[in-house]
C-alpha cells in the first residue's frame, strides 16, 4: 500500500449568508496516496472546489469557516493551524492549479519572476542565480519549447495551453507532496487538454506526488484517476476505484451522469436513441430536502428516501466501494 499523504475526514464547511447558514461541504471523507490520483467529480455547486480551498486553508473567513472534521497532512492537522505555519505548507508541500490560467497568472510579471517568487518564499537557501536556473529547468520539465527565452516572456505572450503549463511549473517548483488540480483543462481545447493530462501523468510518475483532480468531465476521470469520489450537494454519494465505479455504478446519480453523455457507440448509422437525462435540477443548498438530497430527481426513490429513518450514509458494499443510497442499483 502506498503511503497516505493526505486525509480528509468528515469535513464540513459552512458559509454565512443573508438567507442563513449553508453547508457547502457536508461530511466529506477521502484519502490521497503518494503517486495516486483521486478524482472528485460533480456538477457546479456540488462543493468540489470548496473542498479544495478548505485543504489549502483558503476559505475566506468570514463568511466561510471549517465547521467540523479534520484535514491531516502526513499526520499533521491543517485545521486551525496558525497562518504562519500554513503558509509554509501552502504552495510548498501542497500546491494547487486553477481552472483559468488566464486570471491566475499576474499579467505584469514575467513567467520567470512568477516561478522565482515561489522559490524565494519556500527555498530561501537558493541564491538569485540558482533560482533563475531552476525556473528555466521547471519550464523545460513541463515541455515549454526554448525555455531560456520563454522565461522572460509575459503571460499574454503565451497561449492558453502554455499558460496552464506555466501554472503547473509554478505548482511543482517546490516538489509538493500533494497537487490539487481544480478543473485544470476545462478552459482548454481537447487536443491541448490531452497534452496537459499526459504531462500531469508523466510528472506524477517522475515526482511521485498525490493528485486531487477536480472535474465535471467523467471522461477525464476515467482516463487519469485511480480512485473517484462523486459529489452531490456537498456530500460524497459514491466512492470507488475507477474501474469499479465505471463498470458497476451503484448510485442512481452516478449512473445518470454517465448516461447523459453521448457516447460513440452508435457508429452503425442507425437512428440514435434519446439521451438519458436526470430530470429536474440540483436543489438549492437553502432548500435541501430531508433524507436523501437526490430523491426528487431519482427514479428509484421511495418513502424511505424522504428521511423517515434519517439520512443515507456512505456505507461499504464491497472492496473499497462505498455508496450513500437506500436503494443501490444492484
Amino acid at each position: 500500500m502506498a503511503e497516505k499523504v493526505l486525509e480528509v475526514k468528515d469535513l464540513v464547511v459552512e458559509f454565512k449568508t443573508d438567507r442563513g447558514t449553508v453547508k457547502a461541504v457536508n461530511g466529506v471523507n477521502f484519502d490521497v496516496y503518494k503517486g495516486k490520483t483521486v478524482g472528485v467529480v460533480g456538477e457546479s455547486g456540488s462543493g468540489k472546489s470548496v473542498t479544495a480551498l478548505a485543504i489549502m486553508g483558503l476559505i475566506p473567513n468570514p463568511p466561510g469557516r471549517i465547521a467540523g472534521g479534520e484535514i491531516n497532512f502526513k499526520g499533521k492537522s491543517l485545521v486551525n493551524i496558525a497562518g504562519e505555519e500554513m503558509r509554509k505548507i501552502r504552495g510548498n508541500k501542497i500546491a494547487m492549479i486553477f481552472q483559468e490560467p488566464m486570471t491566475s497568472l499576474n499579467p505584469v510579471f514575467t513567467i520567470g519572476d512568477q516561478i522565482e517568487e515561489v522559490l524565494e518564499l519556500h527555498q530561501p537557501n537558493l541564491d538569485n542565480k540558482a533560482r533563475a536556473a531552476k525556473a528555466v529547468d521547471m519550464l523545460r520539465l513541463v515541455g515549454i519549447p526554448s525555455p531560456e527565452k520563454r522565461v522572460h516572456e509575459y503571460p499574454h505572450q503565451l497561449s492558453g495551453g502554455m499558460r496552464q503549463r506555466v501554472m503547473i511549473a509554478i505548482a511543482l517548483s517546490c516538489e509538493p507532496d500533494v497537487l490539487i488540480a481544480d478543473e485544470p483543462t476545462t478552459a482548454l481545447d481537447v487536443t491541448i487538454q490531452a497534452q496537459i493530462l499526459e504531462l500531469m501523468k508523466k510528472l506524477q510518475k517522475e515526482l511521485g506526488m498525490g493528485i486531487i483532480l477536480i472535474t465535471h468531465d467523467l471522461g477525464v476521470v476515467a482516463e487519469t484517476c485511480d480512485d473517484v469520489a462523486v459529489m452531490y450537494c456537498g456530500q460524497i454519494v459514491e466512492r470507488a476505484d475507477v474501474k469499479t465505479l465505471f463498470n458497476h455504478p451503484q448510485h442512481p446519480y452516478t449512473k445518470g451522469l454517465m448516461e447523459s453523455i453521448p457516447s460513440f457507440d452508435s457508429t452503425t448509422g442507425v437512428k440514435k436513441e434519446r439521451l438519458q437525462t436526470i430530470e429536474g435540477m440540483v436543489p438549492s443548498l437553502f432548500e435541501l430536502p430531508s433524507g436523501c438530497n437526490f430523491q426528487d430527481r431519482c427514479k428509484h426513490a421511495t418513502e424511505v428516501c424522504k428521511g423517515i429513518q434519517g439520512e443515507p450514509h456512505l456505507r461499504d458494499i464491497g472492496a473499497g466501494h462505498q455508496v450513500s443510497c437506500f436503494h443501490p442499483l444492484n
Binding site: 490531452a194 471522461g219 476521470v221 476515467a222 482516463e223 487519469t224 463498470n247 453523455i261 457516447s263 460513440f264
Partner: peptide, 12 residues
Amino acid sequence: LFSAIPSHDPKH
C-alpha cells in the same frame, strides 16, 4: 480530434 476526447467508457 476524436482520439483526444477522454472516453468515460472503459470498453472504448
